[in-house]
């Protein structure tokens, strides 16, 4: 059970910062396949944004914007997307996570690997975001 922060400065600045933190998290995830960053770091930054909302503006408002179900759903979607992407190349005889063997496209293998890593980073980012948000909500005593 957490109430809103009692200082109006922290409340206003916190709720103003959250969209920027979330956009920065998405930016880090989208950069993961050709620069510094990636799914793990980006997922943590997304969770930090939502956790900042939880501890500054209080329970009612933050659970209205990001319901309790967001954590488990994002984690499960991310994990299943990652496993499905890993198993997909097995259909045509490739190895696990061998994106060049993904069936159903006529793209060249290097391009396919590039896109495969991007999709994997997004899936990892969703899974990390969901798992950490679920851990945070459990720690503050909220259960599904």
């Amino acid at each position: 059970m957490i109430g809103h922060h009692d200082s109006v400065v922290v409340r206003v600045i916190g709720s103003l910062f959250v969209p920027f933190v979330l956009v920065f998290g998405i930016y880090v995830i989208a950069h993961g396949h050709y620069g510094p960053g990636g799914g793990f770091a980006g997922g943590v930054i997304l969770t930090v944004g939502v956790a900042l909302l939880r501890i500054t503006v209080g329970e009612e408002e933050s659970y209205r914007r990001f319901p309790l179900l967001v954590g488990p759903v994002a984690m499960l979607v991310g994990m299943f997307a990652f496993v499905a992407l890993g198993l997909l190349p097995l259909v045509t005889g490739g190895a696990f996570l061998d994106y060049a063997a993904v069936p159903g496209t006529d793209l060249e293998p290097s391009r396919l690997r590039y896109l495969g890593i991007l999709v994997a980073e997004v899936a990892i980012g969703l899974a990390v975001f969901g798992a950490l948000l679920w851990i945070f909500d459990s720690l503050v005593g909220r259960r599904l």
Binding site: H5, S7, V9, V10, I13, G14, F17, F20
Partner: peptide, 16 residues
């Protein structure tokens, strides 16, 4: 810009 705002706000919260 963000460091300018966030540093002051974080220190405000910690001191409070």
């Amino acid at each position: 810009f963000f460091a300018l705002i966030a540093n002051a706000t974080a220190m405000h919260a910690v001191a409070r």
